[in-house]
Design a protein around this nucleic acid. Structure first.
Ligand SMILES: [Mn+2]
Ligand SMILES: [Mn+2]
Length: 911
DNA sequence: GGATTGT
DNA sequence: ACAATCCAACGCCTC
DNA sequence: GAGGCG
């Protein structure tokens, strides 16, 4: 292994998250390159190539360019360990290279002066070594952003100065490739790294790595099962389904085979494709899964054009056809590359390897893939594709099998509708842009939609000819449709069959595509079919998948979720068991979409759904505790206000407790959120955060006081059960600023601060364990942590506060530079604030599982201590936690029952 | 978001 | 009829 | 006692 001593000398591995040098591991397969973007003192890019077990590195201040005229300065810097290639994160202040790092691009590379050597690591490395010594490298990059041949040349003037220059090939471009500024691993821009949770993947997963095995001589393609609708699920990706000819392409040196599903050999039928694919492998081996597609006259994939193409046998005819009817290979999977069998790798990795190793050209292209199944489906239908295929990210390639890990989704809905008019379009569609279609409802013809997709020239002609004699001056629809093109009305006598995705709630069609005229149907009989098997059914299936049955199989929760998702109505009356709640403004955006945090816009409906689903875990922690509502009826960007008391009318399922107050009216009503309808009713009134007392208005065995007189006097309140907390609270608040805060603002979430907070929480835990006390922990949802010691309710808040203070001060003496208990905010700066004064009657904290009115929609998440080690607040969001909770259940399920005796602990050990 | 108060 | 306004709190800390 | 703090 080449040396890493300089790398180690510059860094302190206790203080930086960067990887320490590791023992050299045996690696086979192509060599890796990576480009990291690094927001250090000065923003730059680090270009690194693997050779002899380490990464030879150059710092490129302006980053790579695809323009051969640009010579980019590249300063040769110290070797980095191989594992550095997947490093993304934040290097803390004062450490070498302090700042944020993302993986801007990664892929495989090979010297390319005398052919490429992806398939022969030793040959490749030999040429790289020579190039490094000689000061001249020519490399073919197969990355996700960078493709093609690049030169690295050492300048005469300086040993360390090199130039990075794009060679002329088909990948040159005047476009600025650094405009694509997201990480290829996490999708995060470097400036957002500070607030984003990082989860390292091993560098060896970035590109195909492994030992060579013989290339399978024959394989059959993996098949998809039939699915009923696309859905959003972070575990799935979606690709358009191409209307072509499924083929596995085997390349071995000069030999190319194109195998159809039935084993037919097609390389001779598509010689140009075969030649292109041969070049893709660069003399090595490769198996691609894909689809041969012929483009019709309109430039869209056409199965007919492909059928015609198959008829040709003579080389002359084929050559002519290749000029006139382009035939393309669309690749969507990579099963084997440069000697490595990739079939057992998960789909999302194969997908990355494919995007890296494939060098797109006019004839060989990469199939688009996307996480947003619903949008892709709509877009795919609109552009003339058959539908979409969903693929489970963690699925292996099961050759020859029909697997549920791949789902084929085609539009299943079809309707016959009456044509009442048509619009003019543009260009070749000047005469007919779209048809206005509708159905009879009572005596009127109700407008449903306009449909402009699905016409070929012949259909266009035919429909126009049939409409001509039906022209009329008056609009046949009962209410005149709004369209932004000139309309010609026709008598409602023609019926069109239309495929579409679903009925929208306002009675329109989503993604309609014209199929044919239906002369066999009497236009007077056209009614809208009940949408039981269309819109509503689609929704139901979707939610059934996205939301597994509630943890306890609670019927009421399932009904609530079904009601919320079963309609697009903005307001309706929700049944919760026997209770009714008027819901309004369900589509109001509470959390606006935040691209940097990869959060879609979340509405009040999303909030209600989340609360219903989480309620079995959340209610035990919120029940019987006087509640402070943080209300944001206009969403998190609008006005927000606290509300502690509720003197107005309220539904009868909402419980409350009256508490003495020294201020003038002597007592106040606090709400108790003791059941699901209350939780939902609170959300309806704009409550986004639920903050609760640490004591409960309920007597049971662990409470020493049995008094429930909270209202008559201060003395009675202090003698009541509300005066004894359920836990000693350690509120851990990092005051380590990200630097982006407005003057005077609270510190924002940032990784450095949270990591330090975690460290303090672990130290606190050690201290408490030494006192025979077992603490539990949760994220607050914002920047801090809540560490609680559940105790029997025998001591009052005052005692609990003293315990918290004693322990915190002890910890602060051990780590004075890291912990502060200062009252003045400026003096807390750079430290972790431990606020023992939270242990006071009437103080509140955001309850477990409560969302926060913060970007990303994080929630307060109870964790095991093991989980805390790798946790980040934004790992737990309204959008993601239900899935986790069905697996883990409530990590705090014992918090209220496994209580500890503080008196004994205090006598036993001393802090 | 909703009740209450002010114009 | 419609717009404006309210919707927290108190005990603890430090000076 | 005043004013900051959560
Ligand atoms: Mn750097
Ligand atoms: Mn806190």
């Amino acid at each position: 292994m080449a040396k890493l001593s300089e790398y180690s000398a510059k860094r302190r591995f206790e203080a930086t998250p960067e990887p320490a040098p590791a023992e050299p591991a045996h690696r086979g397969g192509p060599l890796l390159f990576v480009v990291q973007q690094h927001a250090a003192r000065r923003l730059h890019y680090d270009f690194r190539i693997e050779c002899d077990g380490v990464l030879f590195s150059w710092a490129v201040p302006k980053g790579p360019s695809l323009d051969p005229a640009d010579k980019r300065m590249a300063v040769f810097v110290e070797n980095h360990p191989y594992d550095y290639a997947s490093f993304e994160g934040v290097i803390p202040p004062k450490q070498y290279g302090a700042g944020e790092v993302i993986v801007w691009d990664c892929g495989v590379y090979s010297p390319d002066e005398d052919g490429v050597w992806f398939h022969d690591r030793e040959q490749a490395q030999q040429r790289v070594r020579e190039g490094l010594v000689g000061g001249k490298l020519s490399l073919q990059l197969r990355g996700l952003k960078l493709k093609g041949s690049f030169a690295l040349v050492r300048t005469k003037q300086d040993e360390k100065s090199w130039l990075l220059i794009k060679h002329k090939d088909r990948f040159i471009s005047a476009a600025d490739v650094t405009q694509q500024d997201r990480s290829v691993l996490s999708g995060v821009a470097v400036k957002d790294m500070r607030s984003f949770p990082v989860h390292r993947m091993p560098a060896s997963q970035l590109v195909p790595v492994g030992d060579a095995t013989a290339m399978p001589a024959k394989l059959e393609p993996m098949q998809a099962e039939l699915g009923d609708a696309p859905f959003q699920d972070a575990g799935w990706m979606w690709e358009p389904k191409l209307d072509g000819y499924r083929v596995l392409a085997f390349v071995d040196g000069d030999k190319v085979q194109l195998r159809s599903r039935r084993g037919l050999e097609l390389a001779n039928t598509f010689p140009r494709l075969a030649e292109e694919l041969r070049q893709q492998a660069g003399g090595g081996t490769m198996i691609l899964d894909g689809e041969i597609v012929a483009l019709g006259a309109d430039g869209k994939p056409s199965f007919n054009a492909l059928q015609n193409r198959f008829q040709l046998k003579s080389p002359v005819d084929i050559a002519t056809a290749d000029r006139n009817v382009p035939t393309l290979f669309f690749a969507f999977d990579l099963l084997y590359f440069a000697g490595l069998d990739l079939r057992a790798r998960p789909y999302h990795e194969r997908r990355r390897y494919l995007a890296q190793c494939l060098m797109p050209s006019a004839l060989v292209q990469l199939v688009h893939a996307d996480e947003d199944g619903e949008s892709l489906h709509a877009a795919a239908l609109a552009s003339g594709f058959e539908g979409v295929i969903g693929k489970r990210k963690d699925s292996r390639y099961e050759a020859g099998k029909r697997s549920p890990a791949w789902l084929k989704v085609k539009p299943t809905h079809s309707a016959d509708l009456v044509i009442g008019g048509y619009t003019k379009g543009k260009g070749s569609r000047g005469a007919l842009g779209s048809l206005l279609i509708g159905y009879w409802e009572g005596d009127g013809l109700r407008y449903a939609s306009h449909v402009g997709s699905g016409f070929n020239d012949r259909a266009l002609q035919e429909v126009l000819a049939r409409l001509e004699p039906l022209h009329t001056r008056s609009c046949p629809f009962s209410s005149k449709p709004e369209v932004n093109a000139p309309v010609t009305w026709v008598k409602p006598e023609l019926v069109a069959e239309v495929d579409f995705q679903e009925w929208t709630d306002d009675g329109s069609l989503r993604a309609p595509v014209f199929q044919r005229l239906r002369d066999d149907i009497d236009p007077k009989t056209v009614r809208r079919e009940v949408p039981s098997h269309s819109g509503a059914a689609t929704k139901k299936r979707r939610s059934a998948r996205a939301a597994p049955p509630s943890p306890r199989g609670d019927v009421v929760i399932d009904e609530v979720v079904a009601a919320l998702d079963g309609t697009t109505k903005n307001a309706f009356e929700l049944a919760v068991g026997t209770h009714r709640i008027r819901l309004s403004n369900l589509d109001r955006v509470y959390w606006p979409a935040n691209e940097a945090l990869q959060q879609p816009a979340l509405t009040k409906r999303d909030l209600l759904r989340y609360l219903a689903q989480v309620s079995p875990l959340m209610l035990p922690h919120i029940a019987d505790r006087p509640l402070t509502m943080i209300r944001m009826p206009d969403g998190i960007t609008g006005q927000r206000f606290f509300q502690k008391h509720w003197e107005q009318a309220r539904p009868d399922f909402v419980e409350s407790v009256t508490v003495f107050s020294e201020s003038k009216d002597e007592h106040h009503n606090y709400l108790l959120c003791n059941n699901l309808p209350t939780l939902l009713w609170l959300a309806q009134s704009g409550t986004l955060e639920f903050h609760v007392w640490h004591s409960r208005a309920k007597v049971d065995a662990d409470a020493k006081s049995k008094s429930t007189d909270y209202a008559t006097s201060l003395e009675s309140l202090e003698a009541s059960v509300l005066n004894c907390p359920d836990y000693v609270v350690f509120d851990i608040d990092p005051y380590i600023y990200s630097g982006k805060e407005a003057p005077g603002a609270e510190p924002e979430l940032n990784t450095i601060a949270f990591e330090k907070g975690k460290e303090i929480a672990f130290a606190l835990r050690e201290l408490l364990l030494g006192m025979k006390l077992e603490p539990i922990v949760k994220t607050s949802g914002k920047t801090g942590l809540h560490v609680f010691v559940p105790i029997r309710r025998t001591i009052d808040f005052d005692t609990a506060r003293h315990v918290s203070e004693l322990v915190s001060r002890h910890l602060m003496r051990q780590r004075p530079r890291e912990i502060t208990m200062e009252w003045s905010v400026p003096k807390r700066s750079g430290k972790i604030f431990m606020d023992h004064n939270m242990n006071v009657r009437g103080k509140t904290l955001n309850v477990a599982y409560s969302p926060r009115g913060e970007p990303g929609a994080p929630v307060s998440m109870p964790l095991t201590w093991e989980e805390l080690a790798s946790a980040h607040p934004l790992d737990f969001r309204m959008t993601s936690v239900i899935k986790r909770l069905t697996r883990t259940g409530d990590r705090w399920r014992d918090a209220l029952t496994r209580k500890q005796d503080l008196d004994r602990a205090l006598k036993g050990g001393k802090a």
